[in-house]
Amino acid sequence: MLRFLLGRLVKIVLILLAITVLNFCLIHMAPGDPALVMAGEAGDADPKFLAQLRTQFGLDQPFYVQLWAYVSHVLMGDLGYSYRQQMPVSTLILQRLPATLILSITAFALSLGLGVLAGVVAAARQGRWSDSLISAVALLFYATPLFWMALMAVLLFSVQLDWLPAFGYEQAASGLHGLARAFDIARHLVLPATTLGLFFMATYVRITRASMLEVNRLDFVKTARAKGLKPSVIQRRHVLRNAILPVVTLAGLHAGQLVGGAVLIETVFAWPGIGRLMFEALQSRDYNTLLGVFVVSSALVLLFNLITDILYRIVDPRIRAS
């Protein structure tokens, strides 16, 4: 396990390094002056300021010197300075990170839990109307644009029914503390987390259903049935445990999509996470912040992949043995 973890960590660092190099290349491939890109100005930047940026980042130096300067800065945790927000990008991102983590982890748990449950139900009732209904709903959610689903949820649950708050993370200047504040945040979390979760739930339903049906046909399930075990025990202990493996793999692969979905959901719900920060950076052409969010969200995905890999090993003892 330790060797596995060590190997994965080395790989993660290498991938992050490659993403940093990619970022650097993007800045230099962008049409126009890299100093302009860094300053995030549309072309009316102060020439003195640009000259200062050029010396500061060594833009007059040879290519490899610049690359080294950029990469070493990022690896030290320095993601540059947001001239728009007058703040280091890393500080900006750290302020916003908790909100994104709360949102994406809740949405992930929700989609996995409900998705596997619905998939198991659909598989158990294969061919009946409840199976068709679950599959049809999953297909529909899978085809719905996430941001549109979010808008429609606001329209229905906030504007029409007035059940839940439509925007933000908590009530501004409410002065709430402790449990009352946590409850307030939870109320604000319901709509964003549910819409983000429903989209991914659709895939988990489909894969769980297919996987359950496939495992159901295997010999060891027949044996369990022949032994006279109760069907519910067979489904839970024999079938589900094996059928869940492709779901875990898929969940790992979906980490990137979850981050992308969070960008859209945070934009719609004004949820103050790094996704919303990305949208704000886009609006103000603040490329330093944009690229910073990109590096951090990639790191999040890698971390998430690592967690699903560990989960996989816990669920599937065969890997541990080999």
């Binding site: 993007l26 962008a30 049409p31 890109v37 979905g261 490329y287 944009l290 990109f294 969200s297 990639s298």
Partner: peptide, 20 residues
């Protein structure tokens, strides 16, 4: 694998924003 691990939508945003 590298391109698969990068968050796709965030990467697409960065690409379109930088190349106009």
């Amino acid at each position: 694998e590298f391109f698969q691990v990068i968050p796709a939508f965030a990467f697409a945003i960065v690409l379109v924003a930088i190349f106009q």
